[in-house]
Design a protein around this nucleic acid. Structure first.
Lengths: 211, 211
DNA sequence: CTCATTAAGTAGACATTTTCTACATTGGGC
DNA sequence: GCCCAATGTAGAAAATGTCTACTTAATGAG
């Protein structure tokens, strides 16, 4: 590996280097130039890999979805024939991932990071990640575990809930994200419980369909 | 009103002017200088109202929480003695708010927009907004509407779910955010149903507590 | 009414950053 | 071994964030 010039894997290095900067200084404080200097390349080099700053952010979001997919797959493998545990494990895994990488999660679900180029790569990552989650849900359906709903609706509901909870925790809005693991787990378990069995009291008075 | 100099309400004007820019060009494309020019003031003027760019973004996030609070309060007034409808109305109202103002919602729940100054004003806005939602949940509890959970857990779960769903819709990840109102409502209603009655099939096999 | 205080806006300066463009180096495929 | 596409470099132009030292106007005390 020649010492200088061709870095070897600048693209990946940029993504990795950007993450701590995002955490410490936020999106506004991130600069491609600064990353280049940190990595010992010239200030123009990053543009060989990312059209602009937004494209780098999008690439980071992609890694988040890749992680989500990974978490789902591992959960599935870990409990091959217990889809209930698969979902629980995946959800909890995602929560801890977000707590450890809040800056990545922050980039994942956002209305058009760049409203222009519709991020085909990102859309792809989203699709495969939700696909992995859908598999877990489907497993549960085969075991008659879930009520009769469209799979996509279940994916959507669970992912929304878990992601929202994770962001709340990571943002320190509810509890200190540095709380001991057990405290976070307890909160996750309570929300999981509500999500599984519903908010509503089963013997609630007159059950009118909401308008 | 003197034609020049003292703008009168520059702070508010900046917030309003920033919103469309955020939608069209994203956080990265927003510039205080540009806003100043648009509003016909000098490039330094914004700094009389916001310490920096991040502070402006935070102020926009605050308006989002104010809107959330408003939506909750209106829902409560609209159905004074039907807490079920209160929650449904609030949730659906929030979804449509996010669809109409995705760029604002995007700023609301994020881990430390600026990790430094902990945004007291924002924290305040968060607290009163979640407080309004908590009131609606409390109303339901008085009617024995909800299962026996901590109020904060219910607030958290419902807000997470609704916010997540709204972001998905607004981001165009699932369905076109320009879909007719009825399509969005239908999706919201399905998720609401799942959230209320739970994902799980009530007659599901062996109900082991998740680990 | 006048005047001092202060909030709000201006103008200019400087360091950084984004990006563009033209050029250099290298590794790999033929 | 040579040529080319990919990758990195260097330099410059325009925009931006943000500081500092002024200017103007609104306001309230006397």
């Amino acid at each position: 590996m020649s010492k200088n010039y061709h870095h070897g894997n600048l693209r990946q290095a940029l993504i990795q280097a950007a993450i701590p900067v995002l955490r410490e200084k936020g999106i506004v404080g991130l600069s491609l130039r600064g990353l280049a200097t940190t990595l010992g390349v010239s200030h123009g080099a990053p543009y060989r890999h990312f059209q602009n700053k937004t494209a780098l952010l999008e690439a980071i979001a992609v890694t988040g979805f890749a992680a989500l997919q990974n978490i789902c797959q591992e959960a599935e493998l870990k409990f091959p024939d217990d889809p209930r545990k698969q979902l629980y494990e995946a959800g909890m895994g995602y929560i801890f991932y977000v707590v450890r990488n809040p800056e990545i999660a922050d980039l994942m679900f956002r209305p058009g990071l760049s409203p222009d180029h519709a991020g085909a790569e990102l859309q792809q990552a989203v699709d495969t990640a939700t696909g992995s989650l859908a598999t877990i849900i489907e497993n549960g359906k085969h075991h008659k575990l879930y009520a009769d709903h469209d799979t996509m609706d279940l994916v959507l509901t669970s992912l929304s809930t878990v992601h929202g909870l994770a962001m709340f925790i990571a943002g320190g809005i509810l509890i200190d994200p540095a709380s001991p693991r057990s405290r976070i787990e307890a909160l996750g378990a309570r929300v999981y419980d509500i999500l599984m069995h519903g908010m509503e009291n089963p013997d609630a008075p007159h059950h009118a369909q909401p308008p």
